[in-house]
């Protein structure tokens, strides 16, 4: 491209050509302005489902469907947890929830750190398998084990409880065992027999823990 003539000015020897704006530059600039005006109009007119929050709500609903369409709403009872301990594909979900939220205290494999070792056979605040879900949802030991009911979907609580239950008995080297021996998860006793224990644990969770801490007289991360 050949230059137009120079302008009639010079500064400290610097001259300037009187060239026109490059066409592609000019039209892309105009185009970006036109696009922006149109976009702003369309955006400000609004439409259901277009806002950031609407899109999130839709995505969340879709994600929840994807995760739990098959299983519906689980309740954190013994039968359910025991059942999901047998379903590998759902245990994997429990494992992801565990990795997202639990490993900083209980270790990547559940071997324990600040929180108790979950792979041994003794437990502090848990007497039965549904106790795991309860401790996860409500917390234990004055916040040493935080409550997760606010943060996790109820199904996620069940699935991570099932996952944690499967860790029992691996006895990975890590934090020393602490707490009391309890019967196996699938101890054949009928539901009705469990009710008193269950109720007691739920009612006096705090008291029980305190007593335990005093008895043990050592560092407790709470939890299961």
């Amino acid at each position: 491209m050949s230059d137009n003539s120079l302008t009639d000015h010079a500064y400290d020897g610097i001259q300037e050509f009187d060239n026109p704006l490059p066409g592609w530059w000019k039209w892309m600039f105009v185009g970006s302005i036109v696009f922006s005006v149109l976009y702003a109009m369309v955006f400000s007119m609004g439409a259901p489902g277009r806002s950031m929050v609407d899109q999130y709500d839709a995505a969340l609903a879709a994600n929840t469907r994807l995760q739990f369409k098959e299983i519906g709403d689980l309740s954190a009872d013994r039968a359910t947890i025991l059942a999901y301990m047998q379903k590998d594909e759902w245990l994997k979900v429990g494992q992801v929830v565990f990795k997202t939220n639990c490993i900083s205290c209980h270790g990547r494999e559940g071997e324990g750190n600040v929180g108790p070792n979950l792979t041994d056979d003794v437990y502090k605040n848990v007497r039965d398998v549904e106790g795991i879900a309860r401790v996860i949802a409500q917390g234990a030991n004055k916040g040493a084990m935080p409550a997760w009911a606010n943060r996790l979907h109820p199904n996620e609580v069940v699935l991570v409880a099932a996952y944690v239950a499967t860790m029992r008995g691996q006895n990975l080297p890590g934090r020393a065992p602490e707490g009391n021996p309890i019967p196996p998860w699938d101890d054949g006793s009928p539901e009705s027999q469990n009710v008193p224990t269950d109720g007691a644990a739920a009612d006096d969770a705090g008291t029980t823990e305190e007593t335990e801490t005093t008895e043990d007289g050592e560092t407790e991360g709470g939890g299961a």
Binding site: L6, T7, Q15, E16, F17, D18, N19, L21
Partner: peptide, 13 residues
Amino acid sequence: PKAAERPVFSYKL
């Protein structure tokens, strides 16, 4: 432009 000793491409731009 000093270092290149060339006029600036376009005043309008």
